[in-house]
Write a protein that binds this DNA or RNA. Sequence first.
DNA 1: GAATAATAGATGAAAGTGCATCTATTCTGC
DNA 2: GCAGAATAGATGCACTTTCATCTATTATTC
Lengths: 149, 149
Amino acid sequence: MYPTENETRLWVAINLSQRLIYRKMDAALKEKRLPPLRWYDVLWDLERAGEKGKRPFELEQSLLFEQSNLSRLLRRMTNESLLEERQFSRDRRGKILRVTEKGRVVRKNMWKIYGPLIHEYMSQIESESELKQSSASLNRLVDCSVIED
Amino acid sequence: MYPTENETRLWVAINLSQRLIYRKMDAALKEKRLPPLRWYDVLWDLERAGEKGKRPFELEQSLLFEQSNLSRLLRRMTNESLLEERQFSRDRRGKILRVTEKGRVVRKNMWKIYGPLIHEYMSQIESESELKQSSASLNRLVDCSVIED
DNA sequence: GAATAATAGATGAAAGTGCATCTATTCTGC
DNA sequence: GCAGAATAGATGCACTTTCATCTATTATTC
């Protein structure tokens, strides 16, 4: 019922590492006058979706956004011309989002900062097998949590 | 310079797992009309500090709070009588925080929800060695990041 | 096929957060 | 011991996030 010592330790470590590194990355982007990290996820997800684009509720699921939160974030990004939206004809409640050329440029600029930082922090774990094992473990947590909804 | 595939995967996994599980836990607490998860950290940290209590800036460091953010959180918690503050005589800029009896009760009630959830999620990783290895890896990330400040 | 439920997305109000700045106090170097 | 730097903590402001609710549309059920 209650967690073991090691289970608690892992949960604490997940939180600390995420919070600490995320902050530093966000701060680094802000310093370069680039948008916050969360925008990157949206841009990248849409860029990979290509011509077809994606709908807000799809982003919401894959990126774990709160609906209202995402709604406003998307508006901000659209206002900055990083995204374009068009009405989705088959369901007139919905809309389709795609990255603009400007969005692609901004994402690339963000990656110039973000990418090296990921490397800098993650390379503290040197062995490939350890990297793989750790992410496999964490992904296991995610999978189980998603399913049980 | 740029991250390897596995480095990126780990970083993504850290984010997903943290965000997803944290949310679910916070939601579970809210459903039971208990305070948010972040309050737990404060209560627990102060409870372990015992009679001596702790000062806000110490909490700030160990729990990774933004100063202004923590300042207001502490006020809220004090207003709810979960904490009590007294002036720190040796440095009149500062103050000492301690948990109240009510604070201890609330923390225990939170733990009844929080504890089993930690177990539920973390127990997806069954082997003790895997648990240990994963948290050791993540802690390595944290240590390096903290030091370089 | 009309009534009801479910879904996509937007939005007002409230709470939380970060940033810059402020006050009060203590520390440092001369 | 005094001027200037550093530190503890609070606070105004702007922005973000959440919660609850709303509108519009589509799905379902009888």
